[in-house]
Simulated assay, not measured.
Amino acid sequence: MKGAFTIEGSSFVDQRGEIKFFNSFDMSKVVRFYEITPSSTDVVRAWQGHSFEKKWFYCHSGSFVINIVNITDHNSPATEVDPKRFELNADNPFILEVPGGNATGFKAGLPHSKLMVFSNFTLEESAKDDIRFPIETWKATW
């Protein structure tokens, strides 16, 4: 897979509550963000890819499984590739960075889970770079 990695977060707890922070996350390239709340833990959203757009994923409520595959050929992707699986959990703060050239799919592990997605592309730029594949294209463990 092409360059996906995690950015570790941390937390601080005292009598006033908890703060989760990501001091090493450089947000200077982020131009928009959105939140995804699946309707149930049975829903799998897969596969969406981008040639150039970079995304960062952060689970701030519940948990998610995110699978990632490198897109080698948009017209005839290699289907024998095993997706790389990441588990995001609100209790273990980290951000998953996924560069362009990859497709992602994800599924909530708990009810009411929420996933923040940050992007370095505007909505218009992202739409021009969007690549979709049927869920059956790759076998993933959700």
Rank of each mutant, 00 (worst) to 15 (best):
A4V: 03
A4H: 11
T6G: 05
T6Y: 02
T6D: 08
T6E: 12
I7C: 06
I7T: 03
G9T: 08
V13C: 03
V13H: 02
D14P: 10
Q15P: 00
E18W: 04
M27L: 12
V30A: 09
R32L: 05
F33I: 00
Y34C: 08
T37R: 09
D42Q: 15
D42R: 12
D42A: 10
R45E: 07
W47P: 07
E53A: 13
E53K: 14
W56F: 11
F57A: 00
Y58I: 00
H60N: 14
V65L: 15
I66M: 05
V69S: 08
N70G: 11
N70M: 09
I71D: 05
N75C: 10
P77L: 14
A78W: 05
A78R: 13
E80T: 15
P83K: 06
R85A: 05
F86G: 00
P93Q: 01
P93K: 11
P93M: 00
F94L: 14
I95Q: 04
I95K: 07
I95M: 04
G100E: 03
G105N: 12
K107C: 09
A108G: 06
L110Y: 04
P111N: 14
F118E: 02
F118V: 00
N120F: 00
L123D: 08
E124Y: 06
E125A: 13
I131C: 06
R132F: 05
F133D: 08
E136R: 14
E136Q: 13
W138S: 15
A140V: 04
T141H: 08
W142L: 09
